[in-house]
Amino acid sequence: MVESEDYEEYIKNLDEFAKSALVETFNIGASRAADALSEMTGLTVDITVPEIEITSIKAVPEKVGEDVKVAVYIQLSGGFEGHAFFFLDFEDALRIFDLMMGQEPGTTTEFDDMVASAVMEMGNILISAFANALSEFLGTEINQTPPDIAIDFTPAILDFALADVGQHCDYTILLQTEMRIEGVKFKEHFTIIPHPASMKKVVETLLGGFV
């Protein structure tokens, strides 16, 4: 049996204050991730988290769309449990690869092993920087698995992470992110699906000073 604390009501009833506190935390993580990527590539990188959305698991396929995307996945455990994904469109993966290689975007036309390993490394750097920021903020250690990559329908990629959350409740948070490299906007999604208990912990740490 899985322990049965009621996260359902908690997640559904997160108020605007708690939500904006979460957005703020994820923005700190995102900006650190952008710095790390910028250091690696020598390019100007900006990543922001404009909003988070609380959504029913049922509606996730409809929200994320059926498109085939490239995804890098890392599992987070220890002080913060969750599933971190970095999504890219095929075309965007190729364009980013060109930027990283100092080539004119459009030079690379095929998603080969070289592109795959560059995307995986990029996802790894982004997620690690994000996790480090979160770890400092929460004052706790966060463990990470090595990265893995998949090319598939977006909901299929998220499925098992939703199954993990779905053991506890029917709702999850979806994080929207925007990334710009050298001023070029990319439709990527850097998504964290936190374990409900970990999300609660972040909110409590954030609001700890005010309660």
Binding site: K58, P61, E66, A156, L158, D159
Partner: peptide, 23 residues
């Protein structure tokens, strides 16, 4: 369209679909 943790039934005509089954 059937979402995650959802189902639908029908008779004689139409399509019932679900997108992106992973696990």
């Amino acid at each position: 369209k059937v979402g995650i943790g959802d189902y639908a039934v029908g008779k004689k005509e139409g399509i019932i679909s679900t997108y992106g089954l992973g696990s």
